[in-house]
Design a protein around this nucleic acid. Structure first.
Lengths: 150, 150
DNA sequence: CCAAATTAGTCACCATTTTTGACTGTCACT
DNA sequence: AGTGACAGTCAAAAATGGTGACTAATTTGG
């Protein structure tokens, strides 16, 4: 069997992760676009995906998303311009600034979380609730192992 | 519970895919770099990951990797300069050119496949062979569903 | 056999994204 | 006070991604 065929029939972990990530991202942002958030692009997910309603520090967002803090900086700039977040001084540390979601930002976060839950629910219905739960359990272990070793 | 904590404890499918993909990619290319393939970057994976020992057409590589054919063109240029592949006329179609791996290219492909197999084997040992096999089975279904819907 | 539509690949260009190093101000610890 | 670490920004370079137009070869349909 050709290598390309083998990769198609038995894709490795990287190919599966890549396909899933990019398709899911594209689908999610298409749906959010139809829900009134057309200006937000997948990139901004590095901020919005991990943002707390109470506000988060740029450094924490950088650590959680795996992006450089410079990248977070420009993403926050763009989200400020779009009206999704504000920068406020952090009362606990005068070096830091809190990135706080506005009403619009909160709406995006809620809708985004809801769409993801719905998308996963569809997968679960298709492959079986139990099988999907077990899949998620093992995936979480694998992801943790990947991060700590890489 | 804070949203960021929840995402850390029960990450969604996108977060898990992203973490796994980027960690795996980084780890793989670090190892390959130590094995004498320091010049090859993750980007080149779009070509090398799907290349057949007998040679592949640029269009097929574009379709399989999801990249535009212009991107494949520049990647092949770079890999030719690095001595990993050659361009040969396709005997079956004079418009087309076959991208054929050199000895060096074949070595990279073999090592890359071997490292990926080893990485997955480590995961399987850690979470249980059976659980891992079931995880891969469901992941493949989920990835196919994601691609066709997105 | 010929004209039209398709397909493979390249060229030139532009927009976006990522990475790097240096820099200011603040904090923590001695 | 002095030292090292951390939060965030600035500025520039490198890498990456996407667009439209173009040539050459193939296929399709009269």
């Amino acid at each position: 069997m050709r290598r390309s065929e083998r990769k198609r029939e038995r894709p490795d972990l990287g190919i599966l992760s890549g396909r899933t990530l990019f398709s899911l991202q594209k689908d999610l942002f298409t749906r959010l676009s139809a829900m009134g958030h057309a200006q937000v692009r997948p990139r901004h997910g590095a901020v919005l995906a991990y943002l707390d309603a109470e506000g988060s520090r740029a450094s924490d967002l950088a650590a959680q998303s795996g992006q450089h803090k410079q990248v977070i900086g420009t993403l926050v700039d763009e989200l400020v311009a779009l009206g999704y977040v504000e920068r406020r001084p952090d009362p606990a540390d005068r070096r830091a600034k809190l990135v706080v979601p506005t009403e619009l930002g909160l709406d995006h976060m809620e809708k985004s979380d809801a769409v993801l839950v719905e998308m996963e629910a569809e997968h679960a219905r298709a492959v079986g609730e139990e099988a999907y739960a077990e899949f998620k359990r093992v995936f979480q272990l694998v992801a943790e192992r990947s991060v700590s070793s890489g």
